[in-house]
């Protein structure tokens, strides 16, 4: 998710703004996390091809209803597709076509649901939601700081790239261009040095303000009726799919 936001660079800001403007983005992060995770766990446990297709359909409907930018969701899904396709192809080779397709549909359902969550929730809200759900502070703090400073480092990298181009560098497209590799490795080294320097300064800034180990969200939020309804709907879908899988219903 962090990588998704950083890879889109400046777009991350617009995404966060868009996330806040649509109804899905306004939902409480905790409700979304619980609902989507319940759905993902259920979808991952499904084996019946029909139910897997149902789960995929549910994920697509959620994505449509969320009113998040479809192009961005499609782009992010396409970025994950090679990994999904590789896993499905392996299953296809060893267990046949039907299972391969089922695997692709199952992983796609999970990925689409998670992409809706990641794209449709302001990044910091998401981490705050995780912290409120009692995910260990050290983990959410690391996520928050990583996200905050990866954005800064990506900006730094952009500036270095511009500086390289401004001085005539245009290599890096061929694996045989040794000179380009030398320049790129120097850039990577410089970025590492700068990151290390920034890390030291951030640590000092944290210490100056009495930080020990946990960055808790300050303002408390309440789960409203709409948040609860969304969460319960997803939990109900997940439970139904699992019950159908276990053939509880006649």
């Amino acid at each position: 998710m962090i990588v998704l936001h950083v890879r889109t660079g400046q777009a991350a800001g617009h995404l966060d703004e868009h996330a806040r403007s649509v109804w899905f983005g306004k939902l409480d992060a905790r409700a979304k996390i619980l609902g989507i995770f319940a759905f993902v766990i259920a979808a991952a446990l499904l084996t019946d091809p029909v139910l897997v297709m149902c789960a995929l359909a549910c994920a697509l409907v959620t994505a449509l209803l969320s009113r998040l930018p479809p192009r961005h969701l499609a782009k992010a899904y396409l970025a994950a597709l090679p990994f999904l396709a590789f896993a499905s192809f392996s299953v296809f080779l060893f267990a046949g076509f039907e299972r391969g397709i089922s695997m692709l549909a199952r992983t796609s359902a999970c990925v689409i649901a998670l992409l809706v969550l990641a794209t449709g929730t302001d990044t910091f809200e998401l981490f705050s939601g995780l912290r409120r759900l009692r995910v260990p502070g050290i983990l959410t703090t690391l996520l928050m700081l990583t996200h905050r400073y990866l954005l800064l480092l990506s900006e730094e990298l952009d500036r270095m790239r511009t500086a390289r181009r401004a001085r005539g560098f245009s290599g890096g497209r061929s694996l045989l261009d040794v000179q380009a590799f030398r320049v790129l490795s120097n850039t990577a080294g410089m970025l590492l040095v700068r990151s290390s320097g920034r890390a030291d300064r951030i640590f000092e800034a944290l210490k100056m303000r009495g930080f020990s180990k946990d960055m808790r969200p300050w303002r408390e939020t309440r789960i409203a009726a709409l948040d609860a309804a969304f969460m319960l709907a997803l939990v109900a879908i997940a439970a139904s799919l699992l019950l159908l899988q276990m053939e509880v219903f006649p």
């Binding site: 300064r201 100056m208 303000r209 969200p217």
Partner: peptide
């Protein structure tokens, strides 16, 4: 280097 919280008021409240 010293602004790390999601909103300005949260950052001011951090210390």
């Amino acid at each position: 280097d010293q602004l790390f919280m999601p909103t300005v008021e949260e950052d001011v409240a951090f210390g």
